[in-house]
Design a protein around this nucleic acid. Structure first.
Lengths: 208, 208
DNA sequence: CGCTTCCTCCTACCTGGGTAGGAGACGGAA
DNA sequence: TTCCGTCTCCTACCCAGGTAGGAGGAAGCG
């Protein structure tokens, strides 16, 4: 039997979820909360397997509640169920330790499936959210590999030192060349990398 | 009926998949290929709904084949099915346009489910892969500027923008304050953080 | 041999970054 | 109330950073 705690500030949503869950032979709703603070204390007392958590709530929000519950009992599976799947909700929730993220417009079967998956150690995500997740992961990847084709050996040397935060003078000393030479290389680096100031150049070199 | 093209260099795997699919009323295997080149030409001729694609193959690999098939017919759903779920396989595959990524140790039911999901426009992922995906997305988030002790709120604002590579003028515009104010904050930031130039300040903010 | 690329360095110039020191306004704490 | 910290902005100054353009030497290549 999967013990579930429902957290949502809207009474109707909780009622709907409870009805849905109670109709299942393997899922049992052991408690409800309409705000983050109650959610934390209830979770501590009831020790549910899965917490179905809304994010936007009065007082303590869902993100904070998630962190606190997990700080207390790290094994708890917290499944976020919310209306908004944008980045500002998704990533804080995942960072806080939520194991899944479903949108409220998901069909009931997906919700129940999500609860079961969460309890089983899996990570249920709505398709829409999943797409966003993949996109970000791919983006993050395509940012890192900066082969920086077309840089000469010397330019690469200078770029590395710029990335370390050295001044032109320091770079000149380090490489045993004149400061004007350093400037020459840097100007060329800027145009080649499309940076218009030194910090951006440094960030570029670091793949950021 | 979902028309499927199987691509894998191991005959046994193909045989197993074919048997599995043929037992389903809604899935039809329309062709097989044991290398990337054949996969591309077969896909062009058979126009399958879903391509189940292995990555490690002799000759043209699965990533390249995926790119080529999608270049020809962008609507094709390509579901990667491979033994290895590490980053070096996962991200290139997603970048190439694969819609899902399953591991070969997945239970048969998950495979069939994956094919159906892929055909329906969803993105099936093995749990293990999904975990990795979430991790990376979260990581990519968390390497944004980190808060530093002892800084005033406004200084923190300025520091974050310095860390992004903005110039003083850009920062002033962004925060709707004067450029001299920005300079004041930056001077204070430099002394507080012990940086003696702007790049080091930016690196400090990024925790480097 | 010319040709090209790269590395080196130069002058001259301008702008942005950074320092020094001061000042007015505001809000909270003593 | 006074005092302190923060945020705001100022002037004035200096210098590092960045641009423009040119030039000589070394190495590789057709």
């Amino acid at each position: 039997m999967i013990r579930v705690l429902l957290v949502d500030d809207q009474h109707l949503i909780r009622a709907g979820l409870r009805m849905l869950c109670d109709a299942q032979p393997d899922i049992e709703v052991v408690g409800e909360a309409d705000n983050g603070r109650d959610a934390v204390s209830l979770a501590a007392r009831l020790i549910p397997d899965v917490v179905v958590m809304d994010l936007r709530m009065p007082g303590v929000d869902g993100i904070t509640a998630t962190s606190r519950i997990l700080a207390d009992r790290p094994g708890t599976r917290i499944l976020v169920l919310t209306t908004f799947g944008d980045d500002d909700h998704l990533y804080p929730a995942l960072t806080a330790g939520a194991c899944g993220f479903l949108l409220k417009d998901a069909p009931p079967a997906d919700l129940l499936d999500g609860v079961r998956k969460a309890a089983a150690g899996d990570s249920p995500f709505s398709q829409e959210v999943l797409r966003r997740l993949v996109q970000r992961a791919v983006d993050a990847r395509s940012d890192t590999p900066r082969p920086v084709e077309g840089l000469t050996a010397r330019e690469q040397d200078v770029l590395n030192l710029v990335a370390e935060g050295l001044s032109n003078t320091e770079i000149a000393e380090q490489l045993h060349i004149g400061i004007t030479t350093v400037k020459t290389h840097i100007t060329s680096l800027m145009t080649k990398t499309g940076s218009d100031n030194r910090v951006r150049l440094a960030l570029f070199a670091r793949g950021a």
